[in-house]
Design a protein around this nucleic acid. Structure first.
Lengths: 349, 349
DNA sequence: TTATGTCATGAAAGCGCTTTCATGTCAATA
DNA sequence: TATTGACATGAAAGCGCTTTCATGACATAA
């Protein structure tokens, strides 16, 4: 590896002090045209680019933002991330990404380690999405790590408020659109509507289940715990959830799936038992990824515009980092995309 | 933000020099037990953790690895990334991730900018996967940027060799399993087998199409360019590809889809035209993600063990970074997972 | 006892930048 | 002409670490 050239070489080459080079580099202080010219020539000549580590150390800004999330291969998080990364890049920041779920060994303190690592690397801001059971029962040490982080750097948590931690909380579930979904099913005559997928003890699931129950009540429909089957967020979990629901033998004519993957899995499970969608059962996905449009049948789903949410996250974080004024103007209310997975209640019900 | 405490405070607190603190921190040089004890106590007391920026600047190691890829929301890349991140973390490195595809504005030099940024941030190693048309027709400036990177830091390119660039090339397509897929279809009696999805002018696609043609030839089957429809990698592209193939009016009884997403889309397109899988058309996905198992019908697919490939990438990169000896032992040959999307040739053909 | 070597330790010089502060230049003002 | 102020500039002091080098303590060998 060739030794990379530094600001000192540029200063020598162009016959000015390193202060002056720094000034033309950052362009915030006037520099006489001829010197500026010479410096720029030297920079071009040597293809010089400042060492970000040194710059970060001296200026106390790393121009890096940390993102901690459970599973980037989950479309929920990857679409969020894409927007975050893009928005961050537009603002000159790069992203340090940590994935907490996908692990060969089990490491109880993994997330805390990651938080500490972010602090050590002096990220200018930190975004934590999900993880640690989405904070319904966070470990004490994890909570302590978050607190420490919040007192050290600008922190955005995607999820609900945690008592005693002062950072920015952005709630994707503020408006979850589930009422619209239930109402739609109700308008088709469905009364016994199941809820499939999601993880017990996780806030995002709890939040959606709560909305589901609330919607049922406000529409005068019965709430039956037997109709709720929590497993997890992936296709295999949808498959499992639908199977368990069927085993319970409770009657139902429609189901809300927590997301597209779960919908895909349940679809498969119902299909395997000879049940048809939407003739026998109506299905709605509570969170559209990009594929449910192509399932058989096409699945009616809630579009939560999660990508736009990512941009909002960065906006908010930069507000804090750069002490900018608020411009909270993004509308991210979910919309129900009606496709072909819902129908009237079958006659024998 | 409270001023974070430094090695100097720890030295003062424990009554030793900062050199000694550094030595107990890094543990490579003997330190007398009592001093070591005192330093460790001070570290615990203040919850001290070294500034990685300063450490990186002084030691010329950032303990960071850069990853540049086109689209992390594409399962191909996200599964690769998960493994990379996990393996890197196990070795003490964190990951700077750049996503080049997902952009609001169009930026011709985006990938070059990202490469430069990685160099500036002094990553200890760089992994570039895909991008820039997967390097069949890379822009001159992009090639120059890669060359510069390769001469500055350990670089792994995932893809085929590029002339004139000396870095480590890891070829995921070395064994693509496509022969097995074609042979399987052939054994079922299929003679006219289409190829759907993938992007024209992209190496990974070209490579798979070449394997497909080669397999056809070696099995004595005709190669017909009309049976090849290149669009892109996502579900909507599979939908489009199948539609275009049908429009061409050429006869075929089976199709290879470049990946699960494309398979999902084509499935949908065939279904919409009243064609049944596998009765009318047999379908194989050339790259299994995690969902094809749940499609209707379950799709026969090639499992490329892409996650294991990620670990291999890090292994190789660390070999270079740390001058370790080679231990190239990972078997990543693809396997054909036979499911329910292939059948015998329909009678009227 | 003296000479030699081993070893823990601290001082100090960087790593490549930013930023403060002092300085010298020059034009505008009195 | 003398004075003031504005302004471009460079020297130098950090930022928080690592690492070299010199030193002094101590044990060992002669």
């Amino acid at each position: 590896m060739p030794k990379s050239i530094t600001i000192t070489e540029i200063a020598r080459e162009s016959g000015v002090s390193i202060s002056t080079v720094s000034r033309v580099l950052n362009g915030n202080v006037p520099v006489s045209p001829d010197k500026k010219e010479r410096v720029e020539a030297a920079i071009r000549k040597y293809n010089y680019s400042p060492n970000a580590l040194a710059k970060g150390l001296a200026s106390r800004q790393s121009m890096t933002i940390g993102v901690i999330l459970p599973d980037i291969s989950n479309p929920y998080f990857s679409s969020l991330f894409c927007e975050i990364e893009s928005a961050a890049h537009d603002a000159g920041y790069s992203i340090l990404l940590c994935n907490t779920l996908y692990r060969s060994g089990s490491d109880a303190h993994l997330e805390e380690d990651y938080i500490q690592m972010m602090i050590d690397k002096h990220v200018d801001g930190l975004i934590i999405a999900g993880g640690q059971q989405d904070l319904i029962h966070p470990a004490k040490t994890y909570l302590a790590a978050i607190k420490r982080a919040a007192s050290t750097l600008p922190l955005v948590m995607i999820g609900e408020n945690i008592d005693g931690i002062s950072c920015l909380f952005l709630d994707r579930e503020r408006a979850d659109g589930i009422y619209d979904a239930v109402k739609y099913l109700s308008s088709l005559g469905h009364k016994r509507i199941a809820f499939l997928g999601g993880e017990d003890g996780v806030k995002i699931t709890a939040s959606r289940v709560a909305s589901y129950k609330k919607a049922l009540s406000s529409l005068g429909l019965p709430v039956d715990e037997n109709l709720i089957v929590l497993t997890n967020y992936y296709a295999q979990d949808g498959y499992r959830a639908a199977g368990l629901l069927l085993e319970r033998g409770v009657s139902f004519t429609a189901a809300l799936c927590i997301n597209d993957s779960v919908a895909l899995g349940s679809l498969r499970a119902f299909h395997d038992k000879g049940l048809h969608i939407p003739e026998d059962i109506s299905l709605i996905s509570c969170e559209l990824f990009h594929s449910s449009e192509f399932f058989t049948p096409r699945i009616t789903a809630l579009d939560r515009c999660s990508s736009r949410f990512g941009r909002l996250v960065i906006q908010k974080l930069l507000n804090v980092i750069q002490n900018q004024e608020e411009n909270d103007s993004l509308d991210i209310s979910p919309k129900l995309i009606v496709r072909a997975s819902c129908g009237p209640v079958p006659e024998n019900n």
